[in-house]
Amino acid sequence: MINVNNLSKKYGSTTVLSLSSLTITKGEHFGLVGNNGAGKTTLFSLILDLIQASSGEVTINSINVAKSEAWKNQTAAFVDDNFLIDYLTPEEYFDFVAQLRKIDPKTLKDFLVRFEEFFNGEVLNQKKYIRDFSKGNQKKIGLAAAFIGQPELIILDEPFANLDPSSQIRLKNFLSSDENKGTTLLVSSHDLNHVTDVCDRIVLLEKGEVIKDTPKSAATLKELETYFSEQ
């Protein structure tokens, strides 16, 4: 699904990311962990062609993201607030995204029903602009929008941050549910518990380089905790 070749990103003389090669297969739930400044968001931004690589390339389904826009019809992401149109109501926002992804209103409605529990009655029919919602609810809106139309690839940066405990658990269950089995999911998180629960492969970044790349096993969480406590 995703191929990364000799990818690097430099700002001046500082290298913030340097990956010789990384392959993410279709349907993989890929977890990215690392301390601040490790390069997680940089990697996601490079995959989404939001920043320009200093060298190397990223391909999604063999399409070079920097050269063509064709990858966009199978990709969705929620990286930060810049993915929300804050003067829209959640309904209008979902509708906007759905129309871009060619989803008809009926399908969208059915889709949103499944998020009812996650939204906890605080998102839909509120007659409020997104900018007037709390941070947590804004996050829920952005996350839900990323799943509209079942894109093949979904990239979520820190999806658990700002969510209340119940919502974190609901999100975790949703990400691991059957309907997302075939979806390639890229998740970064500072919460080692959640990320090991949701993902079946964990990559640990530090200072822009891969330190650890393992399939998840029973021991993964312990290993990660040991690693980070020694930092």
Partner: peptide, 14 residues
């Protein structure tokens, strides 16, 4: 500008 990243990653042509 405040949601330019969204527009740049969505399925829409420039």
């Amino acid at each position: 500008s405040s949601y330019y990243k969204l527009l740049m990653t969505q399925n829409l042509s420039y």
